[in-house]
Nucleic acid binder design. Structure first.
Lengths: 365, 365
DNA sequence: CATGCAAGCTTGTACGGACATGTCGGAGAC
DNA sequence: GTCTCCGACATGTCCGTACAAGCTTGCATG
């Protein structure tokens, strides 16, 4: 039982089909309203309603006294604006600028603009951004979900996007209740690689510090735990520090301080950090406590940000495609807007690679 | 003889007037179609035609079974676009993300979008960006000039902007042949403050490394020279290293290495660096050469970026308003778009302040 | 008190007719 | 041959009616 479409909408789809198939080329005249009405067994008013909508969508234009014609521009697939919207949590910090930059460069090379909005990790701000993108004509939308582990309060707006036929691509994370392609990094594999590297170096007392109010941190943690299990280690709960975005300034540092002040035989010899930002903070903390990195403590970061090379201790970290990720999302979005099908999700996942630098060393306990 | 307007158009103007006068606020319900028809002596079909046009223009929306409502967005009088364009040289590096972020947050709070474009320091890319902003309806434009010391090849487009009445605000720098407000930092005063601080600490052999293909570096250099003159010092030319953007990866580091390998009595004891990025690079270089910072070498950076705190040596640097600068530019632009006059240029200049940290120390030669 | 249903509002769809206005081509006048 | 005018036909405006479908309210029923 498909639900019955109103007649004017069926006629609209018919005409859209004609245009797509180029049955009527640019500025070519369509049958008159009366002809269409007779042909389809409709009244002239109903035909007028159809054509009226197509005119307001820019697909057709009418000339008083002459007839109705196909618009030269705007093929149905090309639709929408000339700009693409992008909503991310933060735009100034850490690796986000590089992601934005990658998307911007790609869009620029394809003649598209970038309409940017940030949410500062607030779902309310995300809502505002979505509303503006809906009001403004955008060709498509790239979204980094805000607090993806805490559900999707703006689902109604995302549904409206899909109803309007505006393609959507997510980056880094996805809302589970939304079916759309997502360009991301394999965080679980990254967490696994980080821990496996340390285990290979002979470390046995690993600590992990992860931000777990998004799925990224959770996955990195899971990868670390899998590596430990495969090496026959069961990490002690108090060596796993989980924190939320709000606490990132103080809680992980305080917890790390407590761990590093333990006596020699209990102190962790290696730290797996949620990202480079935390890692440099902890390297600093360690040297403040008189622990030299990497001789007395190994530290692994994540994301290969510019921070990894800023200090005197160059961080061992996991690569992150950053600008390539942004560019890939932009490419994908424009392809979707052109009516191409989405590639399978597996092709949108980047595998992070371990970059060995100076913050990790073998351990001979 | 005014030409007679059709009835539906008269009603349309009436309703547009109501919306302009905020008689119906966002999401407030309008009279039903039958009420309007009775009130204006029209048929319901005619009223529907009116409302249909207003809906397709985005001023109203209808909800089946409930009624017709005023759209929250797009007041008719708001004019122009609802987005502001921003063109900067880089968007991912250094402090630029913070400037963008400040502008974005301010625009967001005022209900505007941000259309972003970067030039990667290419005048050709700047041209593309300007063309897109002109084609796309933007309310105004924030521009950071690209290679401002090398003239303005896109003047024709800037003139068209002004002819179209699109307000323009520059940040960081200005094209000398364009008369528009410019939000910036007093770089000369910054260079002066940096050098004066070192001179006050007892240093006498100062070296300076500046990127001089934009006006910022040139001004910082001039400030440094003024401070030296006032202290009765004439800096030797070979202690001043000037470089261009293309050479920034190698030339300043190579020159610094040469200076720091001079024998004790000739080696500079303090470096004034164009920015923090260069400063951390040189701190690293110095420790590689066995020179401890700040005991054997003082280093001053610029811009108080996150790099200043990333390493183990915390940089003494000059403050930069960053996000406040972006926000100020956005505020100013929206005010200009509202028809307010531009404030005097003096009020748009931020004075940098010295932030004393761990990379500078007194010198007792 | 809760549930369900119907009445009465809304907009949505579809038809019918009538006349106005703009365009164009052909018949007829010059 | 050229010009004018008229008629055919296009869209534009306006009205009327009817019924479908979605939402809210309130009354009646259990």
């Amino acid at each position: 039982m498909e639900d019955r479409q109103p007649k004017y909408r069926l006629l609209k789809q018919q005409i859209e089909g004609w245009l797509r198939a180029e049955k009527y080329r640019a500025d070519e005249q369509l049958p008159s309203e009366n002809e269409l009405a007779a042909q389809f067994g409709l009244s002239r008013q109903t035909v007028r309603q159809t054509i009226g909508e197509l005119v307001s969508e820019g697909l057709l234009y009418r000339v008083h006294g002459k007839g109705t014609f196909a618009s030269p521009s705007a093929r149905p697939g090309a639709g929408g604006g000339t700009a693409v919207g992008m909503i991310t949590t933060y735009i100034s910090d850490y690796i986000f600028p590089h992601i934005v930059r990658g998307a911007e460069a790609e869009l620029r090379s394809r003649g598209c603009g970038l309409l940017l909005s940030s949410t500062d990790n607030s779902k309310q701000a995300e809502r505002q951004g979505l509303e503006r993108m809906l009001a403004h004509p955008v060709k498509g939308l790239i979204v980094e979900p805000t607090r993806s582990a805490q559900g999707n309060t703006n689902l109604d707006l995302y549904v409206r996007l899909q109803l309007d036929g505006i393609p959507l691509v997510m980056i880094n994370e996805r809302y589970p209740d939304l079916d759309c392609p997502c360009v991301k990094v394999d965080d679980e594999a990254g967490g696994y690689a980080a821990a496996a590297h340390l285990l290979r170096l002979g470390h046995t007392r690993l600590a992990g510090l992860f931000k777990t109010d998004d799925m990224q941190g959770t996955r990195r943690l899971q990868g670390m735990l899998r590596a430990c299990r495969e090496h026959g280690l069961t990490p002690e709960p108090d060596r796993l520090v989980l924190y939320a975005s709000e606490d990132k300034a103080s809680k992980p540092a305080a917890a790390a301080k407590r761990l590093l002040e333990l006596p020699q035989g209990e102190r962790p010899t290696a730290l797996v950090c949620y990202n480079d930002e935390l890692a440099v903070q902890l390297v600093d903390l360690a040297s403040g406590l008189g622990l030299s990195v990497p001789d007395e403590l190994s530290v692994v970061g994540f994301d290969d940000s510019q921070l990894a090379l800023a200090g005197s201790v160059k961080l061992t970290t996991l690569s992150h495609p950053k600008s390539e990720l942004g560019a890939r999302a932009a490419r994908l979005l424009l392809d979707l807007a052109d009516g191409q099908p989405a590639p399978p999700q597996e092709q949108l996942i980047y595998a992070p690679e371990l970059i060995e630098r100076g913050s990790t060393a073998p351990w001979n306990g």
